[in-house]
């Protein structure tokens, strides 16, 4: 599990006055849980993810992953970014193998799981294709497979479907839930779409900017497996209204 206590992040600015990107963030994520973080731009949600991923230094506070403090990137995490960030000089299979190569894992064992993941994300037969031959949705599927290949406990996702069109995005949400159900990973997904946050989550963390802080944590009691029809249900609408209430009342662009 991940536990974040009293996390602060301030950026020094040229003008002198520091910017509070994150202020007193407290969050516990249980094993196997699907948590979404939603908030308008500038609320520090990407900063939170980068600190969790270990690629950004926190200013103060503590982060424990399975009881050990996080100061730098760890093998227990797999990260999916806003853009797929595939390396154009590597084919699909070689791109998925990037974490395996970095961590010096056994190539043949993990190549088998890479192929299996490729089947899971519906891209069997695309092993030898290069990123430029794939659509945006396909590229992000490869990005998800890459984040899972070294079998991490946690999956961090930073607006992974933000760059996709609405139809592809819904499809990817369903696929992600399938993958989550099969792989039993703990997921923290950041989004600026309230509907996406409600649709995917066990729990929604609502963040607000200046300073970036948590304003609400909502348990989502919608049944699983979820399907797109649920989006029109009253219960779904209630959750969406509750999240939106936080932004509407402050007059922010969510």
């Amino acid at each position: 599990m991940i536990s974040v206590t009293g996390l602060n992040k301030t950026y020094a600015t040229r003008a002198g006055a520091p910017v509070f990107a994150l202020s007193d963030v407290n969050l516990e994520i249980a094993q196997g849980e699907f948590v979404t973080v939603v908030g308008p731009s500038g609320c520090g949600k990407t900063t939170l993810l980068k600190i969790l991923a270990g690629i950004l230094q926190k200013s103060s506070g503590s982060i424990l992953v399975n009881g050990t403090p996080i100061e730098r990137p760890t093998r227990q995490l797999g990260v999916v970014f806003q853009e797929a960030l595939l390396l154009p000089w590597r084919n699909v299979l070689q791109n998925i193998m990037v974490p395996v190569e970095i961590q010096g894992l056994d190539r043949s064992t993990f190549e088998a799981s890479a192929r299996q993941l490729l089947r899971l994300v519906g891209l069997s037969g695309f092993e030898q294709k290069y990123p430029r031959e794939l659509s945006g949705g396909m590229q992000q599927r490869v990005g998800i497979a890459r984040a899972l290949v070294h079998d991490p406990d946690f999956l961090l996702m930073d607006e992974p479907f933000g760059a996709l069109d609405a139809m592809t995005r819904e499809q990817m949400n369903l696929e992600l839930l399938d993958i989550w159900a099969q792989k039993r990973k703990t997921v923290l997904l950041i989004t600026h779409s309230i509907a996406e946050a409600v649709f995917l989550a066990d729990r929604i963390v609502v963040m607000s900017p200046r300073p970036g802080r948590i304003v609400d944590i909502i348990d989502v009691d919608l049944p699983r497996p979820r399907d797109l029809d649920m989006i029109n249900s009253d219960a779904f609408g209630t959750y969406v209204r509750r999240v939106r209430g936080h932004f509407g009342s402050r007059g922010m662009d969510a």
């Binding site: 270990g54 990137p73 760890t74 990260v79 960030l85």
Partner: peptide, 26 residues
């Protein structure tokens, strides 16, 4: 070299040398 690609490699625990070999050189 793209900062984002470098951060991606870093998140998978890449070393300086691995970042050079996998992104900067290409």
């Amino acid at each position: 070299a793209s900062t984002q690609q470098i951060e991606m490699l870093m998140s998978f625990t890449a070393s300086r040398w691995q970042i050079f070999r996998m992104v900067k050189l290409q």
